[in-house]
């Protein structure tokens, strides 16, 4: 069974093809980088994988279950999302809640609603949260509000949230694009450890090719909504990379994290 299976996924925004017949298969326990210039469709693909957006056609399965098929999002998408840890560029923690509460939200799908709505967590559930925070080295800040912490610290807590979730697949959308180099290194190392020790399949979109090459054995490159390379990191030639980023010179200068502009997000809660 594949961790992630995408076939023939197409999405148009107006007249622009954001995703053009994308097919992709990722096995359990793989760590894959998704690279490409800004606007090449990396974020859009990840958002489709977790069922935030419906494609025009094509099918997406996570752990063998269909998230969407032919433009229709599965009815049980909320159940399926519980298997997917999603790491956002802007962390998306709730600033006024403590780090621990933020992390505990990872297990909302396992807790009966009457208890979760009153924010009552059992001792065991709290311990799980603290344990996850310890794993990313953030247990000291468990009772601080998320908004009081730096970007790198928030991103590590966001990974702890995915751990508490018990995710089998981790999707990371530019997780280090707004972090300094040292925080970026820590976050990438934690992601690599999650992949190694928890056996999660990790698909991480990155703007920096050097980071992708260092952490991911396999690389998927996108351009104008199409997969233009899918194979071992070693197989990427400098000419290909230069060509891939031809319209995006700032990313070609490796190392410097560009201010990746997040794509506009429409967010009706009833989705």
């Amino acid at each position: 069974m594949h961790a992630i299976h995408v076939s023939g996924l197409t999405k148009t925004f107006g007249s622009r093809r954001a995703l053009d017949d994308v097919s992709l298969t990722i096995a359990p326990g793989e760590m894959v980088a998704l690279i490409g210039a800004s606007g090449s469709g990396k974020s859009t693909l990840l958002r489709h994988l977790s069922g935030f957006v419906a494609g025009d056609c094509g099918e997406i399965c996570i752990c063998g279950e269909a998230v969407q098929n032919g433009g229709r999002i599965a009815r049980n998408v909320r159940d399926l999302r519980s298997h997917i840890g999603f790491i956002f560029q802007q962390f998306n923690l709730v600033g006024r809640l403590t780090l621990l509460t933020n992390v505990l939200t990872g297990q909302l799908h396992r807790i009966p609603t009457h208890r979760s709505l009153l924010r009552i967590f059992t001792r065991k559930e709290r311990d799980l949260g603290l344990q996850a925070l310890a794993e990313v080295g953030m247990e000291r800040y468990a009772f601080q509000r998320a908004s009081t912490l730096s970007g790198g610290q928030q991103q590590r807590a966001a990974i702890a949230r995915a751990l508490v979730q018990g995710a089998k697949v981790v999707l990371a959308d530019e997780p280090i694009a707004s972090l300094d180099p040292e925080s970026s290194r820590k976050v990438m190392e934690i992601l690599a450890r999650v992949n190694r020790e928890h056996g999660c399949a990790v698909l991480v979109s990155l703007h920096q090719v050097d980071v992708a090459l260092r952490y991911c054995p396999r690389v998927v490159a996108m351009r104008d909504g199409r997969v233009v390379y899918d194979g071992p990191a070693a197989g990427l030639s400098p000419e290909f990379l230069k060509d891939l980023y031809c319209c995006d010179p700032e990313a070609a200068s490796a190392g410097a994290p560009p201010a990746g502009a997040p794509e506009p997000v429409a967010l009706p809660l009833a989705a």
């Binding site: 935030f52 939200t105 990872g106 609603t113 924010r119 979730q165 967010l267 809660l269």
Partner: peptide, 22 residues
């Protein structure tokens, strides 16, 4: 809307999104 999406990504239901995100 971003924190709400963060809660949604964990597989939470609509009421949980409101209680924890909104």
């Amino acid at each position: 809307p971003q924190p709400v999406e963060g809660i949604r990504a964990t597989g939470a239901n609509v009421l949980e999104e409101i209680v924890y995100g909104v």
